[in-house]
Nucleic acid binder design. Sequence first.
DNA 1: AATTATTAATGTAAGATTTACACTTAATTA
DNA 2: TAATTAAGTGTAAATCTTACATTAATAATT
Lengths: 229, 229
Amino acid sequence: MLNSYSSADKVLLAVDCIIFGFDNDGLKILLIQRDFEPEKGKWSLIGGFLKRDEVLDAAATRILNTYTGLNDIYMEQLHAYSEIDRDPVERTISVSYFALINIENHNAELIKNYHAEWFPINDAPNLIFDHNEMVENAIKRLRYKTSVKPIGFELLPEKFTMRQLLELYEAILSKELDKRNFISKINSLEILNKLDEKDMQSSRKGSYLYTFNKEKYEEKLQNNFALNL
Amino acid sequence: MLNSYSSADKVLLAVDCIIFGFDNDGLKILLIQRDFEPEKGKWSLIGGFLKRDEVLDAAATRILNTYTGLNDIYMEQLHAYSEIDRDPVERTISVSYFALINIENHNAELIKNYHAEWFPINDAPNLIFDHNEMVENAIKRLRYKTSVKPIGFELLPEKFTMRQLLELYEAILSKELDKRNFISKINSLEILNKLDEKDMQSSRKGSYLYTFNKEKYEEKLQNNFALNL
DNA sequence: AATTATTAATGTAAGATTTACACTTAATTA
DNA sequence: TAATTAAGTGTAAATCTTACATTAATAATT
């Protein structure tokens, strides 16, 4: 029995993660300042190499965990980038992943030690290699996914207000949404629990907090809802 | 300056193509009977290995051309598959591509020589490795893409009737569509040219032939139309 | 030559969804 | 207690989607 396809060329496989977060200032991505050549000192996506006995999803998870300390994060494979000289050191094909994290949960110290930093998606530095393109494509995918599955919730804290949810969707879609219409569309999905508790930070009146109801969501998902915002 | 990431592991990168075609019998995929071990004699997607100085898109194009003789074909990268033992011979990561071809144009002899064959998507043999999964995902993507861009035209001959177009969409979406509603939705896109010529094969009355108008399509595409069938 | 058979072509009304829009409420602060 | 601030709420018009049936054109048959 054959044990190698001997004539074929082998290549390096990298994984680069587009990590989205959301806070009061809007939608952000986590970038890292490279501390090795080439392009040392420049900003880059967080990435690493695939190991011999590792599946791509596992590599993405490992890399995310290394730099943020987080586990159980929503991640999705996006695209394989293969331009010949995309990495000047050595032929490297990179598979991009996007991750959605609750910006409050990550390990701030870890990030700092790695010279990583959050940047607003509309005000991020220029990135090395083809990473700008990777980010652009990730934003497109995030927009699309948002209209098909309520993955936006991954970006919010456990308890959130309608306003936060609205602002998140506005940031993702980068357009203004009508408050009343938004609320009734979200409510019609029946995947939120309205709590008896109010958030008093944002206003005098206070606004009700909600949680995301995973069970109801899973139930609904069979029937494939679309969210037309 | 560094010239290798020496500690990282290298892997084989394959490309597998899900090639869709359409004729009077419906939507089909092109499969090949493997003539080498492992799994010799079993059915498989058409694939090959990425070469050292080749971009993934080029590899997909090369592979498609080798087996069908076709050039200038609509292809799109889908997903990277990386299960450790997906190929029992050697660790191989495979990137899947889907292609849409006009089934009448391909080189029938070439296909025959390679022991390739068209199968209806609902009546295809079991495939090697993870190729069944690849096909399933490709069908999902084809369905989605169809609702967003009129890529279905790639599958039709240059001149086609409304009935053919309807049947193509029915095959892709695997549901019945209302003829009158379908026609008015397609017409509202304003991307077809109605010819003065009729196809007399299908009926006594004859049905008008249409061509796809690329310029009008490109024009419209800016405004991102959705086709809700 | 007339009749029959076959598929193509065409429009409308009802129902569903989406959009646009403004006032009242609750609580804090001055 | 008056003023301020953001929260919370409903409806009517417009648009889009759906369901549905008859006539038209031609070839084949008698």
